[in-house]
Design a protein around this nucleic acid. Sequence first.
DNA 1: CGTTAACTTATTAATTAGCTATGTTTTGTT
DNA 2: AACAAAACATAGCTAATTAATAAGTTAACG
Lengths: 154, 154
Amino acid sequence: MKISTKGRYALEAVVDLAVNSTDHLQSLQQIAERLDLSKNYLEQLFGTLRKKGIVNSIRGAQGGYLLARAPEAITAGEVIRAVEGPLSPVVCLDDGKCQQACTDFEMCVTRIVWQAIMDEINQVADEVTLQDLVSDYLESRDASDGETDIEYMI
Amino acid sequence: MKISTKGRYALEAVVDLAVNSTDHLQSLQQIAERLDLSKNYLEQLFGTLRKKGIVNSIRGAQGGYLLARAPEAITAGEVIRAVEGPLSPVVCLDDGKCQQACTDFEMCVTRIVWQAIMDEINQVADEVTLQDLVSDYLESRDASDGETDIEYMI
DNA sequence: CGTTAACTTATTAATTAGCTATGTTTTGTT
DNA sequence: AACAAAACATAGCTAATTAATAAGTTAACG
């Protein structure tokens, strides 16, 4: 049960954007280079993120992207769902229709397992904001800068 | 982020086995017919379930399967993981190796999101035992029998 | 008016999922 | 002993999905 590269790349890219767009717009070119991703592929993802109201764009030369809201107001779950669709482990939770091996939606006993999993995934993913991830990033960057300094000082 | 038919079928089939193998072994033929699944495909799944110690088998004519332990002692998570592998949303949690867009496993900030999701999935799935699902099944079967009676009585 | 960068869409290459098919071994029944 | 039923094992196939790539078009700044 894996999420796709869409979800992984989107979350990494939006964190990167949050970290780097505090004073300047960021072009997809810049983000793609930092994360070593295809710019074309990121364009697809950011098209979706824009339509879902997570990022804003400025077109034309010197254009780029920025967050549509404060990083405290954007959750990881929101970003992941934007590109992945609903975080449900089985399709019947999306459309209410039975699949094979389940003849009656109302009587399906395994669904309580899938429903509980889905609820927890969403709750956990929505408890983490972009600001949390940005803070973690800055901390771990500063910590590793420190380590580097020590090495240089030897 | 969907689980595959392996996980869905395996859980449905093991619940079916738990319900029906209280006094007789159940052949895959019987299970496959009740759930409308391919017997060959179920054989692959039950091969794995047997190796993981979830079911026991008796070979030969009049052979079949039964649970390897009491239904109270088998969790939904165990069955799902047996056929699906670890319930982790990203591979780096399985092998500790970075994928694209994450250059340093130690510094990866999005991993805390994936780790939290994985922990919750496993916790929730391991809180549900086969006995819970069997009880739900028997209750909903009895309830719908009742409904049917009422319809007949009108 | 040229360059940059967002936006859009079509196509393709690779992988995975979801079986199917075929055969072998074991064991109870006749 | 022969037969039938059922587990066990593995190879292969098809279709769908994923993950890009490619090739443009549109918009805006300098």
